[in-house]
Amino acid sequence: MGLCGVTQRFDRVVRPETTSLLNETQIFGRDKELERVLGCLIVPRNSKRRRETCSVSALRSNHLGNGSRISSLRVLPIAGIGGVGKTTLAQLICNHQRVRSHFDLIIWICVSDDFDVKRLTKEVIQSCTGKEATADNLNTLQEILSNYVNNERLLIVLDDVWDDALKKNGQCWKRFCAPFRSVQEGSLMLVTTRCPKVTEGMCTMEPVILEGLNED
């Protein structure tokens, strides 16, 4: 019929905003994927908080003074088709006791197909402080954010990311990530996406690919 494949888009009215709170009371069939992500987060099996960091070579970090800073934030995509459970897995991770006791900050941002660097930066600042960011200059916003996350062990989740994030040859993505260079070693960004381009363009480690659940 001459039809051409196009990337489906979701209006925010149709695609509701997600949060870090679990919608489900029980999660089935994702134990393997959960353990894989916990391993990538380098979360201790003992829930007691531990401040020691992992090897420099594993995280490609730079050491500054007495603290451990990173040269670039690790990015782990959780990829799969729509409805397969990417958001639910990310929620499960954010609410896991070992994760919550391990990280100083856990931030959840629902992105969808509007990757506006200024808007997202404001939302991250609001998540850190509980207050709306009033500045409208991107440089000011990024300096504020960099100060808030400075030397903090951070887990940030970007839920439902589309290839719009890689526009302008990836400059928008790089600009958004710039303030996170001041976070502590061991920090990580989880990105949920159904777009192969996002998985390939953002990952710094092997992505977690979610398949459909077994019949049982």
Rank of each mutant, 00 (worst) to 15 (best):
K131Y: 12
L89Y: 02
M189G: 01
L105M: 15
C203W: 02
E152W: 06
S55D: 12
R98E: 09
E123N: 07
R15A: 08
R45F: 13
L41C: 04
V43G: 00
I156Q: 00
R36A: 11
M205G: 13
G83L: 15
M189K: 02
E211I: 13
T7P: 03
V99T: 07
S47I: 07
T199H: 01
C4N: 15
E33C: 09
E123T: 05
C40V: 07
T7R: 11
L166H: 01
A90G: 06
G212L: 14
I70W: 01
I107F: 03
G82L: 08
L158R: 00
T140R: 14
K131R: 13
N23D: 13
R12H: 08
D216Q: 10
L38W: 06
K48Q: 09
S71F: 11
G130S: 07
M205Y: 09
S187T: 02
E132R: 11
S71W: 04
K174P: 05
E143G: 01
C54M: 11
S47E: 08
D113F: 03
C110L: 08
D216C: 07
G170D: 04
Q8L: 09
C172Q: 09
W162S: 05
I107E: 00
I78F: 10
L21F: 12
L213G: 06
I107G: 00
N169S: 15
G5M: 08
L190T: 00
E123R: 04
M189P: 01
L158N: 02
T204W: 13
E35F: 15
H96I: 03
I78N: 02
L38M: 13
P44G: 05
K167Y: 11
F103K: 00
K118R: 11
L38T: 06
K122N: 03
Q126P: 00
M189N: 01
I109F: 05
R175Q: 14
Q26H: 14
